[in-house]
Design a protein around this nucleic acid. Structure first.
Lengths: 231, 231
DNA sequence: CCCTGGTTATGACGCAGGTCATACGATGGG
DNA sequence: CCCATCGTATGACCTGCGTCATAACCAGGG
């Protein structure tokens, strides 16, 4: 389990919440609580109405939808500073996705009521939220395009590209995705099976396009990956 | 070609724009222009920056993404009173989708600049927009789930359910979708091929679950359709 | 040290559905 | 009225990938 961070530090990291005035942020922070989650632990269940939303402090959280047949699919991976479950907060319906810790995680619980007090009158927060929704919609539409017309490798490539863009570190070798994801996790993001994901990644590994360890994946051939993930 | 409606009537129909004060709406209306589009005509191209967004007056418009291979996929069908291309307006990026008329259509061109003047200071408009974005995101995620784990018939069923919910008319026979959609259009919505769509719809027709004419489709067995489209 | 459970890896097999070919029924223009 | 064009319909074929089975590997606990 990583070390427990401070509530204020985490809220400051959020590109959304740090738009708040210092005193408003302070007041909000004093109503929040830092909470741990074990690897694999469910933070909340899909559709469940909670009285808070989350901000990731350290670790990673995935937003999961479980379908009838029991398969899970992950719509998003949230990392440090990212807010999750907020859309459900402001539109009044609960979050339709389950939040589950990918790694040992510390996250801040922000009480909805306290947030809504400052949110309701803030044009800036609303503007940021709309922009984020727009981006997410965009990403979702791209995924739909790839699912309709693309191949499994196309989607796995896109997932790696997105993760690299959001959480990648530039290294001498290439872009490193420092998230301890299993093949299963990647499969859930790409909307396919573990086996297919393994086949694709093994192939790329042999071709020298990526290098994968247990704790990270490095995209060594960025150009090839861009080609693979093109819509 | 249907008869040309009035700009003010159309703007009033919009659940978004009629949130505006009467005088603000009137001012906006005076800056707008009613525009026709033939069946199949492109209103704007994907990614193209226009200085306006649209509100459907009569007819239907589809929001299309064309992929590398030349296949089109439709993310949404917009009907009377619906606003399209607005997300691209408020987030500054252009609309990533092509707008194309499904039928003979009249739509209002609302100049972005005039809209943004009233939008920037309106909490109500922003709230509505966020809610809409939230719903659309939800729908997109459901589609992703179905594309990942469901079958073609599952998706075609979902498309019919959604269209029925948005534009359905209750009749003695069942719910009628009064949009002159070709099998091709439905295929693009469901992310599959015409042939597969035809097979599914023919089968359902034989089983008495739907009845399809050239100008409309009637869902006669609502329960069966709900079963087919379940995630 | 071994045992157990989780993860990666690989082969064999089957099928849903994409692709191609063909035909028939509508609709509309000359 | 005929012909051209578009949409619907249906069969035959083929393949990507999901499914199942099996094995190797690795880490942690007793």
């Amino acid at each position: 389990m990583p070390e427990r961070p401070g509530v204020r530090d985490v809220l400051h990291q959020s590109a959304l919440l740090n738009k708040l005035e210092a005193h408003a942020l302070e007041e909000l922070a004093s109503a929040c609580r830092m909470e741990p989650a074990e690897k694999g632990e469910t933070i909340w269940l899909s559709g469940k109405h909670t009285d808070y939303f989350g901000v990731v402090g350290v670790g990673f959280v995935k937003m999961v939808k479980t379908v009838e047949t029991g398969q899970d699919l992950t719509h998003e991976i949230m990392g440090p500073g990212q807010v999750f479950g907020l859309m459900g907060t402001v539109d009044g319906c609960g979050c339709p996705l389950e939040a589950r810790a990918v790694t040992g995680t510390w996250y801040v619980r922000v009480p909805k009521a306290d947030f809504l007090k400052v949110y309701g009158s803030s044009h800036e927060l609303k503007d940021v939220l709309i922009r984020r929704a727009s981006v997410r919609l965009h990403v979702a539409h791209d995924m739909i395009s790839r699912l309709s017309t693309g191949s499994v490798s196309n989607r796995v490539g896109a997932v790696l590209q997105i993760l690299a863009g959001d959480y990648g570190h530039e290294t001498a070798e290439g872009v490193e995705i420092r998230i301890p994801l299993r093949r299963q996790d990647i499969a859930e993001l790409a909307g396919t099976t573990v086996e297919s994901t393994i086949r694709v990644l093994s192939k790329w590994q042999k071709e020298g396009k990526i290098r994968s360890g247990t704790q990270s994946i490095v995209i060594t051939d960025l150009e090839a990956m861009a080609r693979e993930s093109r819509i």
